[in-house]
Nucleic acid binder design. Structure first.
Length: 486
RNA sequence: GCCCCCAUCGUCUAGUGGCCUAGGACACCACCCUUUCAAGGUGGCGGCACGGGUUCGAAUCCCGUUGGGGGUGCCA
């Protein structure tokens, strides 16, 4: 990853942008917006511009920015791709913001006001209105310390053409003369944002719906600055189970936290894309699982839904399960490696891995499933008492266990294979008139400590004859002591 | 309060006036398969918020009601 200014080689085509503020973690909603912009930029042969809106938090800039770029890379938005441009930093455009503000003042599109925040509030209260009443519109206030620059909202109606929702009309009389420059002469978000977009020749603004109410103000600024406004698109917000906008405080929203939980990037990307949109062909396919290149080729703003979407972790996990199951073994081993204890024998894990991939919801579930294979020599697994009691209950359980242990003891070194282990158990169980499902229960608890896990005979093959016999004999002893106690 | 947006199964959605007795995915339930658990297969449960219009015909168009959400800073 390089933080140097990466210039896109794309010179034509639409220019999209993704403009996060560097506040630490990367929000899943932001990830979805980035994905939308990315899909469109690539499909349309355009550019994805990354701009870090770091107006006042410049100190941790590098660190946060690296985090954002890494998170973007994780979801496939790669800074090395030809369609990627940036990062640009809002803080580096401060001069342009001030210049634009001056132009607006000189043209009369904006004016200074010397009221303090408190005075504005007091006036509003007295007048029975909310917000600013336009007090200084025609007072001819000159620039000066403590004076804010406000935009002179013209009369009329502002029409926002939105690719997702169609035309949205705003009566300008409902929009107050908003602040462009603070009393300390620093630019407000709205101004900085618009000036940056103009400077970066942005043609398409695709973002979450929460920005829709800002849009008429921004559009008026574009026009006042003599620029042609971009194409707008506002996608619905992501909400929690209470149907509130996902928030950092209440909800688990950090992309990194899902990654750390063992959610695969492809699963996250695929799931995020299905919120507010369905890939065409999903119904015929009976599945919503699609590779990125197909999602990218099919995504259209016009097809995006209009209502907020619940970020459902259950469905995310369901997607993740599919993706883990479909992962080539080598990729699975690489992905899960970080979740395995350092001292586990990787070769041994690789031997059992094919039998656990379809049993995992998250990568991090892997260790618990096969722990019994990685105990120090001579150590016994923790036995689930309920599972043991249940498996040991039938009258035949004890004698059957003894016979299995004896049969397995007679295996030669080359015979210790899952197919033979299974065949032998099937032969023994015949005289007990039980099925394999019942027969394997006690040996399973004896060897793994639990009633569920990977297929037994495959696990035994990996465990090896010595350790298997030791655990089986241990269990035989336990059965014996139990019947004595009775 | 004011402005804006939205409204199909529990959830994500398909549906752009007749193809809808409303389709799929996730979740849930049952059965089958089975070496436990998974996976897989089959089936099931379950929805057009409400009220008025328009129309031969409305989930689809219009109006209203209700409900939800977003925004309303010298935050971004």
């Amino acid at each position: 990853m390089s933080l140097g200014s990466v210039r896109s080689t794309m010179t034509e085509g639409p220019r999209f942008r993704f403009a996060p503020s560097p506040t630490g973690s990367f929000h899943v909603g932001g990830a979805r917006t980035a994905l939308h912009n990315w899909a469109l930029a690539r499909r349309l042969g355009g550019t994805f511009v990354l701009r870090i809106e770091d107006t006042d938090e410049a100190r941790n800039r590098l660190e946060w920015t690296e985090g954002i770029i890494d998170a973007l890379a994780w979801i496939g938005v790669s800074a090395d791709d030809d369609h990627f441009e940036g990062p640009h930093f809002q803080s580096e455009y401060a001069a342009a913001h001030i210049t634009a503000a001056s132009r607006l003042f000189e043209s009369g599109a904006a004016y200074y006001c010397d009221l303090t925040g408190q005075e504005v509030q007091d006036r509003a209260k007295k007048l029975g209105i909310t917000g600013y009443d336009g007090y200084s519109r025609d007072r001819g206030v000159e620039p000066g310390s403590g004076r804010v620059l406000r935009f002179r909202v013209p009369e009329g109606t502002t029409v926002v053409h939105d690719a997702v929702r169609g035309d949205v009309l705003f009566d300008n009389s409902t929009i107050e003369d908003f602040v462009l420059l603070r009393g300390n002469n620093t630019p407000m978000f709205l101004l900085a944002n618009v000036v940056d977009d103009i400077e970066m020749r942005i043609t398409d603004v695709v973002r979450a719906e929460e920005h829709l109410p800002n849009t008429p103000k921004q559009q008026m600024l574009w026009e006042a600055l003599g620029a042609e406004p971009p194409r707008w698109a506002h996608v619905p917000v992501l909400v929690n189970e209470q149907r509130k906008k996902l928030s950092k405080r209440r909800d688990k929203v950090a992309v990194e936290s899902y990654r750390d939980d063992g959610i695969l990037a492809d699963a996250m990307v695929n799931y995020l894309m299905t919120l507010g949109w369905t890939p065409p062909g999903a119904e015929e396919a009976g599945s919503e699982i699609f590779p990125w290149n197909e999602l990218e080729a099919a995504f259209r703003l016009e097809d995006v839904t209009l209502s907020p979407a619940f970020f459902d972790v259950k469905k995310l996990v369901a997607f993740n399960k599919q993706y883990i199951k479909n992962l080539p073994l080598a990729d699975f081993l690489a992905a899960v490696d970080a979740d395995l204890p350092d001292d586990w024998d990787r070769q041994r894990f690789a031997a059992i891995a094919p039998h656990i991939t379809e049993r995992l919801e998250r990568l991090g579930d892997a260790p618990a499933l096969v722990e019994f294979l990685f105990l120090p020599d001579g150590a016994d697994p923790d036995v689930d008492d309920a599972a043991w009691t249940k498996a040991a209950k039938p009258d035949w359980a004890g004698p059957f266990l003894v016979e299995i242990a004896e049969a397995y003891a007679s295996f030669g070194p080359d015979e210790w294979r899952s197919d033979k282990l299974k065949a032998t158990m099937e032969a023994v169980m015949l005289s007990y008139e039980i099925k394999l499902g019942k027969a394997q229960a006690l040996p399973r608890v004896a060897v793994t400590g639990r009633s569920v896990g990977p297929p037994l005979f495959e696990a035994l093959e990996v465990l090896g004859q010595n350790e298997t016999l030791r655990r089986l004999r241990n269990a035989v002893t336990r059965m014996a002591s139990k019947s004595e106690a009775d």
